[in-house]
Simulated assay, not measured.
Amino acid sequence: MARYRTIIIILTIVPAFLLAACGRESAETAPVVRPVRTVTVAKSIAGAPLSFTGRIEAEDEVALAFRISGRLIENNGKTGDRVQPGQVIARLESQNELNTLRQAQAAVAAAQGQLTQARNHFDRQQTLLAQGWTTRVNYDQATQAQQTAQSQVDAAEAQLKTAHDLVSFTELKVDAPGVITAVGPGAGEVVQAGQMILRLARQDGRDAVFDVPAQFFRSAPSDPQISVSLTDDPAVTAHGRVRQVGAQADPVTRTFEIKVGLTNPPSAMRLGATVVGRMEMDAVPIIEIPASALTRANQQPAVWIVDPASRTVSIRNVDVLRFEQAQVVVSQGLDTGEVVVTAGVQALHPGQKIRLLGSEQ
């Protein structure tokens, strides 16, 4: 009896487990419908100007420095002063250089005296040799002494020239007209050779300098013309073209520095003035979608495309022309009228059933 009772219990429990398993399988295979938001793709014309804020700088700016080290006794430069070529703007203490110059002058005088003596001796030996009153050996020695004395004079004169140069190096002169934009050490300080004493903006031209993002280079025309105007007076304008592009992005802002050479800038555009640069974009049809619609597939930008008939989604790679704060400009991969998912993209997979938010379906 116990054996029959066990068989009856087993036959009663097994069907219950089978029914529960079938229930779970049915629940697992039921499709999950994801709620999403979408947008319909439409093309627009892009031609709005890009604007950047920058500053006016000298096209040619140099740092003036002494060629030798020494104690600075005079620095007459002031920021904003206009200077002319040949003007002395700073001096070093020159006592040591003057002493070296006097020593070189004395060495030249001594060498010239020895040369005069050697020449006179050579002339006598030459005359005596012609008359047969001296030997060839004495004549050769006189010749060598004269050549040695001449070499000593040449060396002394070279040292004198170097001493003159050292004295001249104690004065810092301007080599071109311009405006002083920065002043370094003051009188009384000891400076090293090559240390900046003054920074001079030469009056050869002016640049408008801007820090622009990388997308500027992807969307800019091949040879853009930039319109530059003063921030505090938009009526003061000038035009220019990109003259120089920074080779490396700033490590903090990740922007690139560009220099726009200005053509005949007005005098009101002084060095350091804040300006606004505007660049007209080419009017081309583009597709803009919300930045939230962008995801990645195959290590490339992609979006989810909705099939209106089956209400399912599929992923597609796209080419991004540029990124903006809230929009993404797509150059290839989308066409007018297609429906793109803009919210809920992280919870989707290919063939996923979707439901539009705000819809009962």
Rank of each mutant, 00 (worst) to 15 (best):
residue 166 L to N: 15
residue 174 V to K: 02
residue 249 A to V: 07
residue 100 T to E: 08
residue 258 I to L: 03
residue 321 L to Y: 03
residue 172 L to F: 08
residue 205 G to A: 06
residue 46 A to S: 15
residue 219 S to C: 12
residue 255 T to V: 00
residue 332 Q to I: 03
residue 240 G to N: 04
residue 168 S to I: 02
residue 208 A to F: 14
residue 159 Q to Y: 04
residue 23 G to T: 11
residue 61 E to I: 00
residue 27 A to H: 03
residue 37 R to L: 00
residue 298 N to T: 12
residue 48 A to N: 12
residue 127 T to M: 14
residue 169 F to L: 04
residue 146 Q to E: 12
residue 18 L to Y: 03
residue 82 R to I: 10
residue 337 G to T: 14
residue 237 T to I: 01
residue 151 S to W: 01
residue 273 A to C: 00
residue 142 A to V: 05
residue 154 D to V: 09
residue 26 S to G: 04
residue 231 T to E: 05
residue 153 V to D: 03
residue 310 S to Y: 05
residue 141 Q to K: 08
residue 12 T to K: 04
residue 87 Q to Y: 00
residue 337 G to R: 13
residue 340 V to H: 12
residue 82 R to W: 13
residue 263 T to K: 07
residue 89 I to N: 04
residue 332 Q to E: 15
residue 80 G to I: 11
residue 253 T to Y: 13
residue 127 T to V: 15
residue 9 I to P: 11
residue 103 Q to P: 04
residue 271 L to D: 06
residue 329 V to C: 04
residue 193 A to I: 14
residue 246 G to M: 02
residue 297 A to M: 05
residue 63 A to H: 03
residue 319 D to W: 12
residue 140 D to E: 06
residue 180 I to N: 01
residue 107 A to L: 01
residue 100 T to L: 03
residue 263 T to M: 02
residue 181 T to W: 14
residue 211 D to G: 10
residue 345 V to N: 06
residue 139 Y to S: 10
residue 39 V to M: 14
residue 351 G to D: 02
residue 77 G to V: 05
residue 124 R to H: 13
residue 352 Q to H: 12
residue 118 A to D: 12
residue 304 W to C: 00
residue 178 G to I: 00
residue 316 R to G: 02
residue 135 T to E: 09
residue 205 G to H: 09
residue 64 L to H: 03
residue 18 L to Q: 09
residue 167 V to C: 01
residue 331 S to L: 11
residue 275 V to F: 05
residue 187 A to C: 07
residue 303 V to I: 10
residue 303 V to H: 09
residue 118 A to I: 09
residue 160 L to P: 09
residue 328 V to E: 06
residue 157 E to D: 06
residue 226 I to K: 08
residue 120 N to M: 00
residue 54 G to C: 11
residue 16 A to W: 13
residue 81 D to S: 03
residue 88 V to N: 11
residue 302 A to T: 00
residue 86 G to N: 05
residue 180 I to A: 03
residue 160 L to G: 09
residue 59 E to Q: 15
residue 185 P to D: 02
residue 80 G to R: 07
residue 196 M to Y: 10
residue 6 T to L: 12
residue 230 L to A: 10
residue 126 Q to C: 09
residue 341 V to H: 07
residue 62 V to G: 10
residue 6 T to M: 14
residue 347 A to Q: 09
residue 182 A to S: 00
residue 222 S to Y: 03
residue 230 L to M: 06
residue 120 N to C: 06
residue 360 E to T: 00
residue 247 A to V: 04
residue 205 G to C: 06
